[in-house]
Amino acid sequence: MRPMPHDHSDHPHALLPPDPALRVKALETILTRKGLIDPAALDELIDTYENRIGPKNGARVVARAWADPMFRAALLEDATRVVADLGFYGRQGEHMVVVENTPQQHNMVVCTLCSCYPWPLLGIPPGWYKSDAYRARAVREPRKVLADFGVTLPEGTSVRVWDSTAEVRYLVLPMRPEGTDGLSEDALADLVTRDSMIGTDIPKVPS
């Protein structure tokens, strides 16, 4: 077996300023001055994930699955292809699986080892998803974690937690709320919360 080449206590990052904002700024400045990164590209990356790619994409997929049984069946069969056909493909969403909540089973997604998350459908993960508490607890005590979110499952519903350990990204298809017959896809999409597609929330009930 090979030894680990880079395990040492004097990591290079310690040479940068300790304050995290200054550390980022220092590295950005060094790389920019050498022509290795383009500040305009950074602005474009940030704008993409701040304003264009986010949970509204996933909500559209869920709403269509609620409205169209054929779409729902295809989505559960081959999510990667089906969401790509809607234009949702790319970094951190190359291999998609959609898992369906039922009265018998509630699904919940975590990445215990890092922060894997379906970017093209949900955007950049929220802080809680990346927190030690969620990563540590979601697999062992999902029901107590759900309680932190104010969610209590009905008696007889089991929990299946998906730990995203590979490049496959999971999206939860929540159950369609009661009293939503006849709503348009747009109106349905408004009921789909980001967290309901991670499995830590249930969709809103129409008011």
Partner: peptide, 18 residues
């Protein structure tokens, strides 16, 4: 240390507002 699945002692998950 990143391999924290199942660890005890981290306290509640603090949810941000969507």
């Amino acid at each position: 240390v990143h391999d924290m699945g199942g660890r005890f002692g981290d306290g509640p998950v603090v949810r941000e507002v969507e």
